[in-house]
Simulated scan of single mutants.
Amino acid sequence: MIWLNTGISTNDAVISLSFTGTSDTKKPIVAMTRPINRGTVYLYNGKIARYKADKGEEAYREHRKNSCRNYRCLETAKFLRYVENQFFDEGWSLDAAVGHAKANGLFSTKEMVCTKTLYNYVDSPSTSPIQAGTAAP
């Protein structure tokens, strides 16, 4: 694709853009080419390529929809309640509760989270589905 009727190819333009500025502002070439490629529209039966900012923005928004982190709290709610009961009522460690559930086949792997995730929940109580002192009866 020739960039903006200047006779400069996209790769040449991106290379010149990516290596200008200080080392703090340099970006990898892929970080520059991806938005350009996503915003490129082809005119006249694909013979002429043009960059359209609104198409690039639309593609960015569409890709962004799938980039959020998915928490599995709903799928693992029973398991989390089980771990809460074992931890708060029985005095078990998180490792022991997970190990016991795995060894006895109490939950499928889709219904469980790993021990590291449980410890992350404990370390960040603001985003944790496990609340201290709220174990289910």
Score class of each variant (00 low, 15 high):
50 R>V: 07
37 N>E: 12
98 V>Y: 02
110 K>H: 03
82 Y>S: 09
39 G>N: 04
35 P>A: 07
21 G>N: 11
19 F>V: 14
86 Q>F: 03
72 R>L: 15
127 T>G: 01
44 Y>R: 07
34 R>E: 13
8 I>R: 08
59 A>H: 08
102 K>A: 00
96 A>K: 11
113 V>M: 02
137 P>F: 10
34 R>L: 12
103 A>T: 04
125 P>M: 05
74 L>S: 13
27 K>M: 13
4 L>P: 03
74 L>E: 13
86 Q>I: 11
46 G>F: 03
129 P>W: 01
128 S>V: 02
113 V>Q: 02
52 K>L: 02
102 K>N: 01
2 I>M: 03
37 N>D: 11
111 E>Q: 08
132 A>R: 06
121 Y>D: 00
130 I>V: 09
20 T>W: 05
44 Y>W: 00
129 P>V: 01
41 V>D: 06
81 R>S: 15
137 P>Q: 08
132 A>E: 04
67 S>L: 09
69 R>V: 14
18 S>A: 15
67 S>D: 10
12 D>I: 13
116 K>G: 03
134 T>C: 08
87 F>H: 12
107 F>W: 01
101 A>K: 03
38 R>N: 12
131 Q>R: 08
27 K>N: 15
73 C>W: 13
10 T>A: 13
5 N>G: 10
11 N>L: 12
129 P>C: 06
114 C>H: 02
100 H>D: 12
83 V>H: 04
34 R>P: 05
65 K>G: 08
41 V>I: 05
107 F>I: 03
8 I>A: 05
18 S>H: 08
75 E>G: 14
137 P>T: 09
25 T>A: 15
8 I>C: 04
49 A>Q: 02
72 R>P: 13
17 L>V: 14
24 D>C: 10
91 G>Y: 14
6 T>N: 04
5 N>Y: 11
30 V>N: 14
66 N>I: 10
21 G>D: 12
136 A>T: 09
117 T>I: 02
12 D>M: 13
45 N>G: 06
117 T>F: 00
113 V>W: 04
6 T>G: 06
119 Y>K: 07
79 F>H: 09
38 R>G: 15
124 S>V: 02
46 G>M: 01
117 T>G: 01
16 S>V: 09
31 A>G: 15
14 V>N: 09
125 P>C: 02
120 N>F: 00
119 Y>Q: 06
127 T>C: 04
41 V>N: 08
28 P>N: 14
132 A>I: 04
37 N>T: 04
129 P>I: 01
126 S>A: 02
86 Q>D: 15
23 S>R: 15
